[in-house]
Amino acid sequence: MKNLLTDIAGVRVGHADDAALASGVTAVIFDTPAVAAIDIRGGGPGIREGAVLDLANTVEQIHGIALSGGSAFGLEAGGGVQAWLAEQGRGFAVGGALIPIVPGAICFDLSNGGDKAWGRFPPYRDLGYAAAVAASEDFTLGSVGAGLGATTATFKGGIGSASAATRGGVKVAALAVVNAVGSVTVGDGPWFWAAPFENGGELGGRGWPPQFTPEMLAMRIKGGAAATAVENTTLAVVVTDAALTKPQAQRLAMIAQTGFARAIYPVHAPLDGDVVFAAATGAKPIDPLAGLTELGMVAANVMARAIARGVYEATALPFPGALPAWKDRFG
């Protein structure tokens, strides 16, 4: 396993971004339609096609997911991913038409120093198309795609991913765009909140501090106590090769979202738009009670690791006053 979302067979990931814009798009493409659901915990989400994932609604499977910077402008990224899928002849059959189902979510990166004067139309639809074209089994982590302009309270954010398997061999993997209002590190030090779940030195092997002081536990958020804008989000996708129903996929998303609390402090704030998409490719049967519980447990750990890797692998933006990357300080 490569410790990536694409350790799940039939899943590919692609990035497209613009260095001057300091923003971009990440596309998750499913080679065959995947059962999917969503769980939203943040106070300021920006979602495309979220209603289609509601358990009461008809469509059960999706063809891709679009994650984007650009705040509400980035919702157009899903149209680019959808356009590429349509060119491949893939979609939900409605009469004689095929409609690719592409949910998505956005994070706010409009004040990170990049040039957002794009004219009449924002570039996110084209970036979404390019990200879908670029989708493959190997992809880069850190400050790329939807994570290019991402930040946290203390360090540069970015794209992270991780994977694992249950004792029975069911795989689960996560991808996160880390643009949280809170901090992924303990205080201002090198330690990650997700350190207990680290696998193979993927977070630098620093562990936790010898003790937690009141200063370490103090709130660190973008803008400090005067923060007022809804300008933050952690977007995540968790995928498994288990065979799940749509309600089971939503339960997986809900359990996996607990990984946010293991990696970000504070989390799920009114200033965040935290969301988790869960998808299942259906390759392996699973017990609906103990099996799904174990899968969710592993997924939450994988999610925490993916979030921490998004900060660990990030690089600073080349603008005055930009947040440092973790590796600039401790790498």
Rank of each mutant, 00 (worst) to 15 (best):
A72F: 06
R206Y: 14
G10V: 08
G119V: 01
E76H: 15
F30I: 00
A9N: 13
N179L: 02
S136W: 04
C107E: 11
W191A: 07
S111I: 14
L75M: 04
K246N: 07
L235R: 03
I38D: 07
P196W: 14
K116H: 08
A263T: 02
S183Y: 12
G282N: 07
G10H: 07
L217S: 08
N301L: 05
G91Y: 04
W84Y: 11
A16N: 06
G64W: 11
Q211H: 11
C107Y: 11
T185H: 10
W208A: 06
A316S: 10
T234W: 03
V184Y: 04
G282C: 13
A226I: 04
F212R: 15
N57K: 14
R12Y: 13
T228H: 11
P45D: 14
D17E: 14
A300K: 08
Q250T: 05
R41P: 06
T166W: 08
I62R: 01
R309S: 07
A66Q: 05
Q248F: 11
S23F: 13
A249Y: 01
A72Y: 12
I40M: 10
H15S: 00
G160R: 14
P214T: 15
I29Q: 15
G282F: 13
G158I: 02
I29C: 14
S111P: 12
A263K: 00
G205F: 06
V102S: 07
W118L: 15
A83S: 15
D287G: 07
E198H: 06
A134H: 05
P209D: 10
S143Y: 00
T152Y: 00
G169N: 04
T228Y: 04
G113V: 12
T32C: 01
D287M: 10
L292P: 10
G79Q: 15
G147T: 05
A249W: 03
F30L: 02
A72M: 06
L75G: 03
A278F: 10
Q257G: 13
F277Y: 09
T293D: 11
T281H: 05
N112T: 00
T6D: 08
R125T: 13
P285A: 09
G89N: 14
E60P: 12
G200R: 09
G200H: 11
L110T: 06
R329K: 06
A249T: 02
V28L: 00
D188G: 08
L4Y: 01
A117W: 03
A176L: 03
A325Q: 02
G147F: 03
S161F: 02
P196S: 09
A105K: 02
G157R: 03
G80V: 00
A243Y: 14
Y124M: 15
A263R: 00
L317P: 03
A236L: 00
A51K: 11
I40P: 12
A150M: 15
G291R: 10
R262Y: 14
L141H: 03
Q248W: 11
D109E: 06
V25M: 10
A278R: 09
R12L: 12
A19V: 05
P266I: 09
A130P: 00
S136R: 03
G321T: 00
L141Y: 05
T315H: 15
V11P: 00
G46D: 12
G114N: 07
G331Q: 13
G64V: 09
F30G: 02
G145P: 00
L4M: 05
A97W: 15
P190S: 15
A249E: 01
V238M: 13
N199C: 13
A9L: 13
L5V: 05
T58H: 07
P266D: 12
K156Q: 06
